[in-house]
Nucleic acid binder design. Structure first.
Length: 639
RNA sequence: GCUGGAGUAGCUCAGUUCGGUAGAGCAAUCGCCUCGUAAGCGAUAGGUCAGGGGUUCGAGUCCCCUCUCCAGCUCCA
């Protein structure tokens, strides 16, 4: 056996170190700074503990808090520290899983008494003690038999244990009194955990299965720098302030009424203006892109959904049947079957393709009561739905065109976005070969265009794979945005055809696409994105004109009439003191306030105060201000 | 749907400890004030205390059931 081993570093340099050295020794040899900063290492592509002996000649990349993997490591270790603390107070707690997640970590416990907010405080304090004790995270390889013995009191761990193959390496990690079945790796010791916070506790099914035991999950988050933790907590506060349910009520955008039913949105006039502006904008956009607007009924014969396969694949999400004259009807859960029927109203020639039907189609879906959430998760919603019927050859060009549409639309609303390719789910219709073909076509277009994307394995609709666009809002949250779905199945089921240039019958391909998705969800998201301060073109009330006193009401209302004549949503507000009205307009997030008093009446001007700009007012000639408003609205400016 | 929490005036919240028959601020309405950039002053009205049942001389308060909302799980546009 060699006395030394060769370690290749990311920059290509090769270090010679004694056999049995750890990544830490490598770091120390490079420099004391790195030794201090190192948290773990990637050895031959595998993430391992910093103090684990190296296997022989290998490639080593040291992980510090600057590497993206580091945060996961920190949070995973934080979860163990949490479990250590919980076990201190509730030794009988069964331990489930405790992984890092996107914004932090959680750990699931099987306890008889659910945790209270006071418990969380106690656990947070005890975590502090665990951190101060600076217990090393000790890795140990064990046999399945040994593991069974170690976890004989932990039924959840035992269940997990049985899933290991008999020859698989099983590892356990210990930090102080706490031992967990865990594949690692971890930070070197609990003392590395400095900035963390427990956030909430709630029930969670064991292994996400609602037929299984309900565990108690504690969520928390952790960061390397205190500033990052503070920033994260502030962001959570900010999100609370932007809650569309609160703003929606305050700004009178939408409401729900128990007499109407849960998950069914009533659009108030102000919200309707926003929705209508969006619809008008999109209509104009898609008509330029060769779409034709259609309308289909809200209630359709159940037979249609037998043909489409919805009854077979989607019934649990559909409203129940309505009986009438011996026939059964359903509220439509999707718009596609209706559009197909329009396509089939007469024989189609290849010369007509692609045909693009668009509808602001309202659909109804049964959603379990516990998932309903403001406008974001509802039981009735209007999709900006469209279906493109085209030949197979036309598919790439159609997808290209859709990517252009998406780009234009999202830029208008000020959303950056990411792209996901969602592939065949378990419950899927049609030939897997068609799925693969469809998936590779989507992939090809993305790659050709140089669009960065990730793959969501098994995330497709039951009838086809899809491209999902995720919006990133003003405070960095991700929302479901446009989707494009390729469908080889419905055309088969409905036996859709066109006559080709060979005078033979052919099957067209169908694309389903939404840009906005659901009006309800989109507007709910916009409320939070803009924090209720809508850009001028969307603002329900664009200008509020405020006469200084009763004396100037006539002068001011003349200007309001002029603005309204020009299509500006302007209103006069004459009651109460000026300060009162300014405050009210600010709280209402009205983009512009125009004050008219003696000076302005004399000079034919208006003193304009911009929402959020405080006392920095600007005096405009009244015509000039009108032109400026028109310009800002026309360009759909985001400022 | 499940686990936990919560429902008091349009909104935000007191009152629940110890059962004695509901209160504030904002909003609304009316009046006064005629006002120069984030709340002028006063008065009035507004509640089957989520709904139903029970215990009690008496229930917003204690017990049971139901509904709705919130957080999370699961699922999704």
């Amino acid at each position: 056996m060699a006395q030394t081993i060769q370690v290749t570093l990311p920059d290509g340099k090769v270090l010679e170190v004694p056999a049995e050295s750890s990544s830490y020794d490598v770091a120390a040899k490079i420099g004391p700074g790195l030794a201090k900063a190192a948290l773990a290492a990637e050895v031959d592509g595998e993430l391992v503990d910093l103090h684990r002996p190296l296997p022989g000649d290998c490639a080593v990349r040291l992980i510090t808090d600057r590497d993206p993997e580091a945060l996961e490591l920190l949070r995973h270790s934080a979860a163990h520290v949490l479990a250590t603390a919980v076990r201190e107070h509730r030794p009988e707690a069964e331990i489930g899983f405790g992984p890092p997640i996107e914004e932090g970590f959680y750990y699931d416990f099987g306890v008889d008494e659910p945790f209270t907010p006071e418990d969380l405080e106690t656990f947070q304090e005890t975590m502090e003690e665990v951190v101060e004790s600076d217990y090393p995270f000790e890795r140990q390889e064990v046999t399945k038999e040994e593991a069974r013995e170690l976890f004989h009191d932990d039924p959840l761990k035992l269940e997990r244990l049985e899933e290991f193959a008999s020859d698989e390496v099983i590892t356990v990690y210990r930090d102080g009194p706490f031992l967990d079945l865990c594949k690692g790796p971890h930070l070197p010791s609990t003392g590395y955990l400095k900035n963390y916070k427990l956030l909430s506790a709630a029930g969670a099914y064991w292994r996400g299965d609602e037929t299984r035991q309900m565990l108690q999950r504690i969520y928390g988050t952790a960061f390397f720098k205190e500033k990052e933790l503070t920033k994260h907590l502030e962001r959570l506060e900010e999100a609370k302030k932007r809650d569309h349910r609160v703003l929606g009520r305050e700004l009178e955008l939408f409401t729900v009424d128990q007499r109407v039913g849960s998950g069914l949105i009533l659009w108030q006039p102000a919200g309707s203006i926003i929705r209508n502006e969006i619809e008008e904008y999109e209509k104009d956009l898609i008509e330029r892109h060769g779409y034709e607007i259609v309308y289909t009924p809200h209630v359709m014969s159940e037979k249609l959904f037998e043909i489409s396969g919805h009854l077979e694949n989607f019934e649990e999400n559909m409203f129940g049947a309505m009986e009438m004259e011996g026939g059964r009807y359903r509220a439509k859960p999707m718009n596609c079957p209706g559009h197909i029927c329009i396509y089939q109203a007469h024989q189609r020639s290849y010369r007509e393709l692609p045909i693009r039907y668009a509808e602001f189609g309202t659909v109804y879906r049964y959603e379990r009561s516990g998932v309903l959430h403001g406008m974001l998760r509802v039981r009735g919603f209007t999709q900006d739905d469209a279906h493109v019927f085209c030949t197979e050859d036309q598919v790439p060009a159609e997808i290209e065109a859709l990517l252009d549409l998406v780009e234009e639309m999202l830029t208008t609303f000020g959303y950056p976005y990411t792209v996901e390719l969602a592939t065949r789910p378990e419950k899927a219709m049609g030939d897997p070969r068609m799925w693969r073909k469809a998936e590779s076509e989507l992939r090809a277009v993305l790659e050709e265009r140089g669009v960065a994307y990730t793959v969501d394995e098994g995330g497709g609709a039951f009838y086809g794979p899809k491209l999902d666009f995720k919006l990133i809002d003003a405070i960095g949250r991700r929302w479901q945005g446009p989707t494009v779905q390729l469908d080889f199945n419905l055309p088969e089921r409905f036996e859709i055809e066109y006559i080709g240039d060979d005078n033979e019958r052919h099957r067209p391909v169908m694309l389903h696409r939404v840009l906005i998705g659901s009006m309800e969800r989109f507007v709910g998201g916009l409320i939070e994105h803009y924090a209720g301060a809508f850009p001028l073109w969307l603002a329900p009330e664009q200008v509020r004109i405020l006469p200084i006193s009763e004396q100037w009401v006539e002068e001011a209302s003349g200007y309001v009439a002029r603005l309204r004549e020009a299509g500006i949503r302007a209103r006069l507000e004459e009651r109460e003191s000026l300060s009162y009205r300014i405050r009210e307009a600010e709280l209402r997030k009205i983009p512009y306030m125009g004050v008219i008093g003696e000076r302005e009446a004399r000079e034919g001007t208006v003193a304009v105060r911009r929402r959020g700009a405080g006392k920095k007012q600007e005096v405009f000639d009244r015509s000039a201000f009108l032109d400026r408003l028109k310009e800002e609205i026309g360009s759909r400016s985001l400022d």
